[in-house]
Structures are given as C-alpha cells and as structure tokens.
Amino acid sequence: MKTIAVLVAMFLGSLVHGQAEKTGSISATVPNVTSSNGEVLFAMYSEDSFMKKEPEFSVKSEIKNGQATAVFENVPEGNYAIVVLHDENGNGKMDFDAGGMPAENYGTSGNSMIYGPPNWGDSNFDFDGTDKEMEIRF
C-alpha cells in the first residue's frame, strides 16, 4: 500500500512540475521619438488592470538616436497590452494642454492611430512565452 501511495505522489508531483508556466521576454522599441528630452515610459497590462491599476510590468528607457527600447523579463504567457509615453518633462505622468489634449506623445502595442485614450481591443496581443520583439510607434 505504501508503494502505491508513493507512486501516486510521484505521479501527481510530475504533473504539477510538468505544467510549469512558460515565461519569456518581450522587447518593445519605439523608433520615432521626436526629441531627446526626458524618457520613455513603457507599461504592460493584462485586461483586468488595463488603464485602471498599476501595470504588471513597467520599464523606463533612455532615448538614443530617436529611439527607445524596453525589455520585459520573465513574462508569463498570456494576453497583454503595452502603453508607451514620451515623458518629456520627467514628471512620471501624461501632461495635457489647456484644451484637454495630450501634450506628450503616446502609443500602444496595437499601433492604432485613434483619437482618445488607449483601448484594450486595439492594443492587446497574445504572448506564448517565447521571446518576442515588437515595434510601437507614437
């Protein structure tokens, strides 16, 4: 009986270990930063947190030769969206002009060119846990 219990425990342990979540890295590049002022902020969200909570991952990037790049490490497979902001004055948030329009450039992983705030439907992508490179344009 002990032998059966040990075999069952080993089998269950191998099932749990065999189903370990795949993780990888996502490299996101913004190739069209218009000035070298400030930094570029990258935020990666799940659908539950999108534009409502803190992102699951965030990275600040320097601007070099009109380009900014961020690498998100150890990202579990899933569905995500990346929002990018050129924080020209370094205050850590998006600034708006007197008319309520964004005063700093932004973009999303869907590269949609709509007016208004980013939305999940146009921005999300599937990540299978293997390393991924993407380009996001302002």
Rank of each mutant, 00 (worst) to 15 (best):
A98K: 15
S112I: 04
S58A: 11
P55G: 11
V84I: 13
F42H: 03
S14A: 14
N124V: 02
K52A: 13
P118L: 12
Y80Q: 07
Y115E: 08
N37S: 14
F57H: 12
V59Y: 10
E77W: 00
E54T: 06
S58Q: 12
S123R: 00
A70R: 07
G66M: 06
A98T: 11
N124Q: 11
I63N: 02
I4N: 08
M1N: 10
E73S: 14
E73T: 10
A20W: 01
G78H: 06
E47C: 00
I26A: 05
E39G: 04
E47A: 11
G110P: 09
F50T: 03
D87F: 11
S109I: 09
P118W: 10
N111E: 04
Q19M: 12
Y115K: 13
L15F: 11
V75F: 07
G90I: 02
Y45L: 05
D95Q: 08
G110V: 07
M1H: 09
S58D: 13
E39H: 12
T130V: 14
A9T: 15
S58M: 10
F125N: 12
F96G: 11
I136H: 04
P76E: 05
N105E: 13
L85G: 11
D122V: 02
D128A: 13
G38D: 00
E39R: 14
T108H: 04
V6E: 06
G38T: 01
N111F: 09
V33F: 04
F57I: 14
L15S: 09
A68L: 04
A20D: 10
T108R: 00
G110S: 08
Y115H: 05
K132A: 05
V40L: 03
G110L: 08
A98N: 10
L12F: 13
A9P: 05
A20I: 08
S112A: 13
G129F: 10
H17T: 14
F50E: 03
E77I: 02
A103F: 04
G92V: 08
W120R: 01
Y115S: 09
F125Q: 03
N119K: 14
S27C: 06
M1G: 15
F11D: 01
F42L: 05
H17L: 15
P102M: 01
M51F: 00
F42S: 02
N105V: 05
A98W: 04
T130A: 11
V33L: 11
I82M: 08
P117S: 07
P55K: 10
F72V: 12
V75S: 06
G121W: 01
V8C: 12
G116V: 04
Y106V: 01
M134T: 08
V71K: 15
L41T: 04
S49A: 15
E62S: 14
E54P: 00
E88R: 13
G24P: 00
W120M: 03
E56Q: 12
E73I: 06
P102S: 00
S46T: 15
K2G: 14
E133L: 01
G121Q: 11
A43L: 07
F57A: 10
S27H: 08
Y106P: 01
V83S: 07
F50A: 05
V75T: 08
M44F: 08
M134A: 03
K52Q: 12
I82N: 00
N37A: 15
L85H: 09
I4Q: 10
S25W: 00
A103S: 15
G99Y: 07
K52N: 03
W120P: 04
P118R: 12
D48M: 03
E133K: 15
S109G: 06
A98Q: 11
V6L: 14
I26T: 08
Y106R: 07
K93F: 01
